[in-house]
């Protein structure tokens, strides 16, 4: 009896000791992480909202509280409106083309063949390469006089095009290049999704007499819907952040004319770091944030209730 009691007390003491050790471990390990996290994420994100409400000077980002004045100015600023328009067009076309092409490629690749590893490697190549070198080479490919693209087009009797010289073609050129860069990423995700579809579903549809076309549209695509939605949203978000390829392809003598492909991030960069209009640039960043938030809500709103295939947002792509 006595001994049992003593045992129970030791046990309890030991458990308390374990709990105490656990608590110490939790705080010692999570606090540094939270500290870094606060410093490089949470505080800047929060401060960005604050900055957007202030008139700034070069030395002081919070010179004078001006309320929503920056936002009012923003939507009267032709350069900002132009960059908003350009970015939306860019995001729309890059997303639509890269998703459609990726689905088609994945459909062609879903049946494993001896060449599958080769295809998957080569289509993924642009995804893993950093943006600057590929933007550099594409700029050279688009060269109006000596460029490879105009040469290839000349086989089909097409006259040389000044790809990066004119606003419309410059946009087309950067869209093509960006689709080329990310199509492999989207393709791999669709491929994983398609290979996850149980074969019995497809067999069953075939036994019922469905054609290949019908299997694709009536069985595969509906089952892929959550993944399609995810890729759509992630591609749109990444496209709204476009900067590097625009910076490279619009700079220098062979670059595109300044405002033809001006994007939101480019505008933020110029206002914030070339003209030091911090508050104004922060207001632009708030608009960008709002767009991304809206896209994320669309994603969660639609896929949230769809049951077994839940997908979480990650930082996809490389930019």
């Amino acid at each position: 009896m006595n001994r049992n009691n003593a045992n129970a007390i030791t046990l309890r003491r030991r458990m308390n000791e374990t709990e105490r050790k656990k608590r110490i471990f939790v705080y010692c390990s999570i606090l540094p992480v939270i500290a870094i996290f606060a410093f490089v994420r949470i505080i800047p994100i929060f401060k960005n909202f604050v900055y957007s409400l202030f008139e700034s000077t070069v030395v002081n980002p919070m010179q004078e509280f001006v309320g929503l004045k920056n936002f009012v100015d923003l939507f009267r600023d032709p350069l900002f409106l132009l960059s908003l328009r350009n970015t939306s067009i860019f995001a729309l076309f890059v997303t639509v083309f890269s998703v459609v092409l990726a689905v088609l490629l994945a459909a062609l690749l879903v049946n494993q063949s001896k060449l599958s590893p080769l295809y998957e490697t080569l289509y993924f190549l642009p995804v893993i390469t950093p943006m600057v070198p590929v933007a550099v080479v594409w700029k050279w490919i688009y060269d109006p006089t000596y460029g490879l693209l105009n040469y290839i087009l000349s086989w089909f009797g097409i006259q040389p095009i000044g790809w990066l010289v004119y606003p419309n073609t410059a946009m087309v050129a950067i869209i093509i290049m960006s689709v080329w860069k990310i199509v492999g990423y989207n393709m791999i995700i669709f491929l994983v999704g398609m290979r996850d579809i149980p074969e019995t579903y497809i067999e069953a549809a075939r036994i019922d007499g469905a054609s290949t076309n019908q299997v694709f549209w009536k069985v595969i695509i509906p089952l892929l819907k959550p993944i399609l939605l995810f890729v759509f949203v992630i591609s749109t978000i990444n496209s709204f952040n476009v900067f590097t390829q625009v910076f490279v392809m619009t700079s220098g003598a062979q670059g595109a004319p300044g405002n033809a492909v001006r994007t939101i991030v480019f505008d933020i960069y110029e206002n914030g770091f070339r003209y030091f209009r911090t508050g104004y640039a922060a207001a632009e960043a708030v608009v960008l944030f709002a767009i991304i938030l809206l896209l994320t809500f669309i994603q969660f709103g639609i896929s949230g209730g769809s049951g077994d295939k839940k997908i979480k947002i990650g930082k996809g792509g490389a930019n």
Partner: peptide, 20 residues
């Protein structure tokens, strides 16, 4: 909080981060 900030790209908060 961690999860919610995972979708906010650097471009959105780079100005205050730079000021820090």
């Amino acid at each position: 909080l961690t999860l919610a900030t995972s979708m906010v790209p650097l471009e959105v908060y780079m100005i205050p981060l730079y000021m820090q």
